[in-house]
Structures are given as C-alpha cells and as structure tokens.
Amino acid sequence: MAVGTIWAVVEPSSGGAATNGLELLRGARELTSTIGAVTFGDASGAAETLGDHGASTVLTVDTGNAMAGVPVAAAIAAAVEARGADGPTAILLPQTYEGRDIAGRLSVALDAPVLANVVGLEERDGRLVAEHAVFGGSTIVKAAFTTDRVQLFVVRPKTFVAEGGAGGAGAVEALPIPDTGRPGATTVVARHAEERIGPKLDEAPVVVSGGRGLGDKERFAMIEELARLLKGAPGASRAIVDAGWVPYSYQVGQTGKTVKPNVYLAVGISGATQHMVGMKGAKKIIAINKDREAPIFGIADLGVVGDVNKVVPKLIDALKSR
C-alpha cells in the first residue's frame, strides 16, 4: 500500500494499554500493514496485547515521573528523524489529555501541522484523508495535508472499534529520550484517583447522564441509582460539571468523553451541539426533559416530555421491583 508505516500512540490505562490506543491500531490496520505502537507507562508492558491488535513493533518510552507530553514527543521526534525514509508517514494520537500534549510538542519539533478532532481516516490516491464532524455532527468536513512532513492526526476516541486477533507479540524497542531542557521540568508529585464503581463511562453498555434539569446537586444521586440498576455508568453534561456537582471525568461531549453505548439516557439535558457530538453514536437514545422543544428530542428514539423529579423516581421504583 502507498500509505507506508503508521505509528499509533497508545497511552496507559489501569495497568495496561488504553482502549483508545487499541482503537487507533485498528484504524491503522485498515490503511497499512506496517504499524508501530508507541507506548509509555504501564502500556509498555502490553506488547502481547498490542501485537494482537496489529502492532508489528512496540516502541516504548520510559517517562518516569515526568508528564508524558514532553518526553514522549521528544523520543518520537528523534526516532522519526533518525529513521528518515524508513520512518512513519503518519502518526495517530488519541484526542485525550496526553495525546494532545504529545501532538502539540511533536508538531513543533517536526514542523508538521496537525489535524485534530478526526472521526474517520481513509486513503485516497495514496494520501490520507481525515474526516471531521462539525456543527454538532451535522456536517462532515474532509481534509488532507499538502506537505510531505509526517502527518499528525489526533483522533477522537471511539472512531474505530478495537479488535484483536491480528498476530503475536510485536518486537519491542525502547526509544531513547533526548535532553528535553526546560520544558521537561514538570514532575507529577502525586496522583489522586476518584472512587468510581461500576463500568467505565466510555466502555459501559448503558450510560445515564444528568444535566442542569436535575435542579440541584443532591438529585444526581438519582442518576447514579438509575445507572446502577441498569448496570451502566453515570455521566453528565458540562453544565453540572462546571457547577461542581460532579467531577470532570463524568463529562460527556466535545470537551469530555465520547460514548457509544447501546442505550444512552439523557435526563434533564437540553442537547447542546457540544453535548450531542459526544453521545450521538449511541445505538438508542432515551431523553427525559420537560421542554417539548429541547433539541435532544430531535435525536431521541424515545422522548419523554416530563419532570425528571416525577418520572425518574417512578422509573427507579419500577426497576427495583422487577
């Protein structure tokens, strides 16, 4: 294939490789057969999983206690330059905290522009074309680079579906980190994890999200209860994250998580475009909102026009008594 070698950045998650990284490997497999997975932290030990998901080589970066962005980008940039024509023609990064940090640094180090918010990738006449969803997902814009620099694509999670069975463990190679100078001076001194039970928000088959229509912080307990009864994960609109009702990690949407559950329940959420881009991919959507004109009803498979304080407690009782 004309596309050449593709590298995908796979970040760590709960002791292994993050799903969004495995998704990138799946996307790369559609385009080429020579794939490198660039990993750091706990993902470096996941060579077998990465190989199974399509990585022929696993390139590891030992970031220690540093924030990942600077050292990982420096190591990749040096490796790209050292490899010359044998190096990657494209690098896929997840649209996450670390992914964007790495992409920004790489872009400057390699003097390469970035296409971000990618929701699809295809090959057209030997060049890579990226898809972007704009205006709340109502319009698709396709874009491509006009330079022969390494192509940097920052891809939204859930763009591809992770799939194993592609082969054995890849060959592992440690990438050295060149001196990163002043920018390398950030260290993580402590990590704080919030207690969360049940499935992860971006992997749960059912997501129940609450919005400002709940009225106050205490009523988010209804959302958690409903999520628990449906074996799903609770989520939130940005309005209530900003209001401090729930942590940022609950946020669904453009600036938060992209979710594609079998069922998404939007409770007291208006359906702003920035919220919808994060959940429009759900198989089925159920919305409860007192305003018949709320935009969320435009995409809901089942819409209930009603007061959350009346509908939700009854729904919880009905589910409990089953």
Partner: peptide, 27 residues
C-alpha cells in the same frame, strides 16, 4: 496551514423517534 479541505458533506441525520407526554405513566 499546509492542509486543505477536500470535501464537505452533510452527515447522515439521526432521526428522532416517539415522543410521549408524561401522564404519570411515562416511566
């Protein structure tokens, strides 16, 4: 910018389904 837009298309629209008013039994 060294990039170009190659195409602009309308995304497949997601259609709304049933909408019911809560009469006390919507749950």
């Amino acid at each position: 910018a060294r990039q170009e837009i190659t195409e602009v298309l309308a995304a497949e629209e997601r259609k709304g389904g049933d909408i019911v008013e809560d009469d006390g039994d919507a749950h």
